[in-house]
Simulated scan of single mutants.
Amino acid sequence: MDQQPETGWSGGRNVFGDFAPGMVHYTDRVLFDEVWERAGLSKRDRSLVTVAALTAMGKMEQLQFHLAFARQNGVTDDELKEALLQLAFYAGWPNGMGATTVLKTIVEKAD
């Protein structure tokens, strides 16, 4: 893969280092540098959409990052709790419970 200048985002590199350079590239350069920076939605709205999708699919490992990222992007804890309650009825109670457990852990660690 061609060497490209470093970007402001390094989440993929932090997770994978040199282990999976393709995953690092697409995570850092495409997903977070291109998709997340598009003007069509605010980062706050992108975070809510992402949290909803990951909750619906039961992807708790990815939710650990994205719930914390949603908080950084301006989504309040109360809004996240409400979103997860709503999702529990549409995405399945176990997924909603799992996501709420992840959020609770994040909030408690931040306190």
Rank of each mutant, 00 (worst) to 15 (best):
M1E: 12
M1K: 11
P5V: 08
E6H: 05
T7C: 09
S10Y: 00
R13E: 12
N14E: 15
N14P: 01
N14W: 03
G17A: 12
D18P: 02
F19H: 06
P21C: 04
G22T: 08
G22M: 01
T27L: 14
D28T: 03
R29N: 15
D33R: 00
D33A: 11
R38W: 02
A39W: 01
G40Y: 07
S42K: 06
R44S: 03
D45V: 12
L48N: 04
V49P: 02
V51K: 13
V51T: 07
A52L: 07
L54P: 13
L54C: 12
T55P: 06
A56L: 09
K59I: 05
M60E: 14
Q64A: 15
R71M: 15
V75C: 05
T76F: 03
D77C: 07
D77F: 01
D78F: 01
D78Q: 13
D78Y: 00
L80Y: 00
K81R: 06
K81H: 00
A83D: 00
L87K: 02
F89K: 02
G92H: 10
G92S: 04
G92K: 14
G92E: 02
P94T: 09
G96Y: 03
G98H: 07
A99Y: 04
A99N: 01
T101K: 12
T101W: 01
V102R: 00
V102L: 03
L103P: 12
K104V: 13
I106C: 12
E108D: 15
A110N: 10
A110L: 08
